[in-house]
């Protein structure tokens, strides 16, 4: 591959922007969670790209990707468990109506 690193980073930045936009606008809590997964994946692309271009014989960026995956898996499990609990309690998961943190 001869493409410049900047191309890969741009792809990652665009995907990050899409994820952030989704996380900020979706009303369904599960969709918010899905958009957060997008954000995390874009970060992973970034890490792997740097690993490939900067230190290909060390794989350090890939190590961090492994950790991000771990945290993402944990986050998805706990997030969905919380959403399920909310769904049972309120019969909906519309985060516009979940505002327990309000003053």
């Amino acid at each position: 591959m001869t493409l410049s690193l900047s191309v890969v980073l741009a792809v990652s930045a665009l995907m990050f922007g899409l994820g952030v936009y989704g996380a900020l606008t979706q009303r369904n809590a599960i969709r918010v969670l899905m958009c957060i997964e997008l954000v995390l994946n874009s970060v992973n692309i970034n890490l792997v790209a740097f690993s490939r271009y900067v230190g290909p014989d060390q794989a350090l960026g890939q190590v961090f990707t492994v950790f991000v995956m771990t945290v993402a898996a944990a986050e998805a499990a706990v997030g969905l468990a919380i959403i399920l609990m909310v769904a049972r309690r309120k019969a909906h998961i519309d985060i516009d109506q979940i505002n327990l943190l309000k003053w």
């Binding site: 591959m1 493409l3 900047s6 980073l9 741009a10 930045a13 990050f16 936009y21 271009y53």
Partner: peptide, 20 residues
């Protein structure tokens, strides 16, 4: 979101990157 992506892309383009 657009602002973020735009700033990032601009930054990326400005940078000096190692060749693959």
């Amino acid at each position: 979101a657009i602002g973020f992506a735009a700033v990032m892309v601009a930054l990326v383009n400005r940078g000096e990157w190692p060749s693959p």
